[in-house]
Design a protein around this nucleic acid. Structure first.
Length: 221
DNA sequence: GCGACAG
DNA sequence: ATCTTGTCGC
């Protein structure tokens, strides 16, 4: 299906304006049903940073089997600027999403959702553009502070920024560095954390992210 | 002025 | 993100 490409911001000022306009479209309430399929999204870059590959993999929630995969190659759409990261990867990720044949019930992004200086990270951005439930699982923090997290798998600590809870620091594997989970669009933090744990039965990162990471890195080399 | 800063 | 080997520990 042909999708009109909206003008893409070329300056930080323009990008901030876009975030400001889209931010109000975020739906914070949980969806009614548990997801049957979950999508993992990730992007890999060439060494010179001039090319990239974006992957979306759809897994069946029940057994984590692969239901669909889409990988596209392209170029970064924006320089890397903390807080404006989405403008770099969203066009390629949207292209990949367009090529799916199986519609995912939720998007799981590598990065943050509401745990963002303006509460509109990559996961929230993709959620609004697709109107699909979405959340982010990041490996490192962008904003927020938290109390030490228990060492056992499943332990978590609220991620707090400017007095508000913007996500959770979640231990997916006992004794392993925790991940940063934050809601994006049409999903709550509780469900996001529960899904993350279910999708990470053995490793630190959810299988969605791991499979997507492999797919885009393979396509690049 | 000095750190912090998703991928 | 990416550049990169071995090494410590279960």
């Amino acid at each position: 299906m042909l999708r009109a490409v909206q003008p893409w911001p070329r300056t930080e000022e323009e990008a901030l304006a876009v975030q400001d306009a889209l931010r109000s479209r975020v739906v914070h309430e949980d969806g009614p049903r548990a997801p049957t399929t979950v999508a993992g999204l990730d992007v890999a870059y060439s060494a010179d940073d001039r090319r990239l590959a974006a992957a979306v993999v759809v897994l069946n929630t029940a057994d984590l089997s692969i239901a669909d995969t889409a990988v596209v190659r392209g170029v970064p759409a924006f320089p890397y600027v903390p807080g404006l990261f989405a403008f770099r990867e969203v066009p390629a990720l949207m292209d990949a999403l367009d090529r799916l044949t199986v519609r995912p019930d939720v998007l799981i992004c590598d990065g943050h959702g509401l745990a963002h200086p303006r509460r509109f990270g990559l996961a929230a951005h993709l959620g609004v553009l697709t109107d699909l439930p979405s959340f982010g699982v990041g490996k490192t923090r962008l904003v927020g502070d938290w109390e030490p997290v228990g060492e056992q798998r499943g332990a978590r600590s609220p991620l707090i920024d400017s007095g508000e809870t913007v996500g959770a620091v979640l231990r997916t594997q006992s004794g392993v560095k925790p991940v940063f989970v934050s809601a994006g669009h049409r999903i709550g933090l509780e469900r996001a954390c529960g899904l993350t744990l279910r999708l990470a039965p053995r490793y630190r990162l959810p299988e969605t992210t791991r499979v997507a990471d492999r797919a885009c890195r393979d396509s690049l080399s």
